[in-house]
Design a protein around this nucleic acid. Structure first.
Lengths: 200, 200
DNA sequence: TTTTTTTTCAATCATTTGATTAAATAATTT
DNA sequence: AAATTATTTAATCAAATGATTGAAAAAAAA
């Protein structure tokens, strides 16, 4: 374990707590304690709790969605793309299972910000996947489907289990390992479901 | 508009704000202002902010999931059941579109409570739908499927659009009417997807 | 080494927040 | 009407919270 800079310690602690409890429920003193630093240092490095939150969000947005969106833009078949997207997304979520709850609960404060950062509009109108779905159905290779429904279905089926994960894990016969097994099963199942729907 | 009792005014205001902003971000003074009452009345009627929250949650749980769970227990075919469940659920969510974000973001504070209230364990082990899926696949009428995946898929596909609704509504070409149209389309689409998956 | 700059700290500030009090008003009972 | 009970209010409290200060310590530059 190499020594972290104070700035990194603060970010790591804040990231953990914001994700676990949300912005409003995370107190500056919680962050200071978790990071094992003096409260004043939080303001010294980040000016305010809000700016710290923004900094963390900014970083997360740089890494997290970019990787997924680039998959949507690859020039591979729809089936390959769906499989790759769902697999990659599932693995990312297995490493960061609390992220979906965090995103959805902060979404209500500033939905615009999230939409812009992800580039949702472009994905839905000009994205390669959207065009593939249009072209292939025009050629008669797949059933006609509304791209927005197809995307919503794909993301719903992948993300939602993580949203209810805290609930599922309270069941006696369900622990993290079993949950992750379910997710692995879904990496095969979800593409099958989606392709089933459009296969002629 | 008939006159509301003070207690009802407080509950209505609190319900609105808790759902919009969550527990931690909703301040007692916000509730008092929204309800147009003196702050002391909140404590007079409900003792504390937390007890007020619990009272509202209690009421919501009495109404909301009960109706859906009873559908799962009806003695009708799987296809009828899925269609009825998804339709009813969608209509309920159209009337209360912010409920999923509220429920799921408060879930992290006390997942046990939610699981118990819904009776999740019973649904997953002894529920009529779960048994139907087992029996029909044993008879060879449908493909073998893990009931937990089937339920997760059904609920994911229905609920998730409402989770991203605030984001979707920021898009220029998407308003509430168009969103509700999408949901209506999904009332047909989701049962098709689910039955496609298990049809032999 | 001395000076300067950067980083850290304990103490404290001002505001916000959940809650309470005691008095005033309204409603109900006798 | 008088007495009693229930409801409402303005004022206030104590704790929590986000942020700041000025001095001390550590690091870097001269």
């Amino acid at each position: 374990m190499e020594k972290q800079s104070t700035e990194e310690k603060i970010k790591a602690a804040a990231r953990k707590l914001f994700i676990e409890k949300g912005f409003a429920a995370t107190k500056t003193r919680d962050i200071a304690e978790e990071a094992d630093i003096n409260i004043a240092l939080m303001n010294y490095y980040f000016k305010s709790k809000e700016k710290l939150f923004d900094a963390i969000l900014e970083e997360a947005f740089q890494y997290f969605p970019g990787k997924l969106i680039s998959i949507l833009e690859e020039e591979i078949s729809i089936e390959e793309k769906v499989t790759k997207f769902v697999t990659t997304h599932s693995e990312m979520l297995k490493s960061n299972p609390l992220v979906p709850i965090f995103v959805l609960s902060e979404l209500r404060n500033n939905p615009q910000k999230f939409v812009e950062k992800i580039g949702m509009h472009e994905i839905l109108t000009d994205g390669v996947l959207v065009n593939q779905l249009r072209e292939e159905s025009a050629k008669g290779n797949i059933k006609k489907i509304s791209p927005i429904h197809f995307l919503i279905n794909m993301i719903s089926l992948t993300v939602f289990p993580f949203i209810i994960q805290p609930a599922l894990l309270t069941l006696e016969n369900l622990n993290t390992d079993i949950f992750n097994n379910l997710i692995d099963e879904r990496k095969q199942m979800i593409p099958e479901i989606l392709m089933n729907q459009i296969r002629i």
